[in-house]
Amino acid sequence: KRYRAVYDYSAADEDEVSFQDGDTIVNVQQIDDGWMYGTVERTGDTGMLPANYVEAI
């Protein structure tokens, strides 16, 4: 699945990823209600991200 960031996010922990509004997130997997795991296409960084900061595309 592919998602697009709708807000900027700065990683708060080493297992999270930072991204900017408009970034595409690929290979996304749902972890639980609030978190997903995926790769930021622009940077190649992979990690956890907050589900409410992205939307499906």
Rank of each mutant, 00 (worst) to 15 (best):
K1V: 13
K1W: 09
R2C: 11
R2I: 12
R2W: 08
R2K: 12
Y3A: 03
Y3D: 00
Y3Q: 01
Y3C: 05
Y3R: 03
R4I: 09
R4E: 03
A5M: 00
A5S: 04
A5I: 02
V6T: 09
V6Y: 06
V6P: 00
V6D: 02
Y7N: 12
Y7T: 10
Y7D: 08
Y7F: 12
D8W: 09
Y9E: 00
Y9F: 06
S10T: 14
S10H: 13
S10L: 13
S10V: 14
S10A: 12
S10E: 14
A11D: 02
A11P: 06
A11S: 07
A12W: 08
A12R: 15
A12K: 14
D13Y: 12
D13N: 15
D13L: 10
D13T: 15
D13W: 11
E14L: 11
E14K: 12
E14H: 11
E16H: 12
E16P: 00
V17D: 00
V17E: 01
S18E: 03
S18V: 02
S18F: 03
F19A: 01
F19T: 03
F19M: 06
Q20C: 14
Q20P: 00
Q20N: 11
D21E: 15
D21I: 15
G22R: 04
G22D: 04
G22L: 03
D23G: 00
D23P: 00
D23C: 03
T24V: 15
T24A: 09
T24E: 10
V26L: 11
V26S: 08
V26G: 06
V26W: 08
V26E: 05
N27W: 09
N27S: 08
N27P: 02
V28F: 04
V28Q: 03
V28A: 10
V28H: 05
Q29N: 09
Q29R: 12
Q29S: 13
Q29D: 08
Q30A: 11
Q30F: 15
Q30Y: 14
Q30W: 15
I31A: 08
D32R: 15
D32K: 14
D32Q: 11
D32M: 13
D33F: 10
D33W: 09
D33E: 13
D33G: 11
D33T: 10
G34T: 14
W35L: 05
W35T: 05
W35G: 03
M36Y: 13
M36W: 11
M36S: 04
M36P: 00
Y37S: 07
Y37L: 12
Y37C: 11
Y37N: 05
G38S: 00
T39H: 04
T39Y: 05
T39M: 08
V40Y: 01
V40E: 02
V40T: 01
V40H: 04
V40W: 01
V40M: 02
V40A: 02
E41V: 11
E41N: 04
R42A: 06
R42Y: 04
R42L: 04
T43V: 02
T43R: 01
T43P: 02
T43F: 02
G44N: 07
G44P: 01
G44I: 02
G44A: 05
G44C: 08
G44M: 06
G44Q: 07
D45K: 13
D45R: 12
D45Q: 14
T46K: 09
T46E: 08
T46Q: 09
T46S: 12
T46N: 06
G47Q: 02
G47W: 02
G47A: 02
M48V: 09
M48D: 03
M48K: 15
M48H: 08
L49A: 04
P50H: 08
P50G: 03
P50M: 08
A51Y: 08
A51V: 10
N52K: 13
N52E: 12
N52H: 13
N52S: 13
N52A: 14
N52T: 11
Y53H: 09
Y53D: 01
Y53L: 12
Y53G: 08
Y53W: 07
V54I: 12
E55Y: 09
E55K: 12
E55C: 12
A56S: 10
A56M: 14
A56Y: 12
I57L: 11
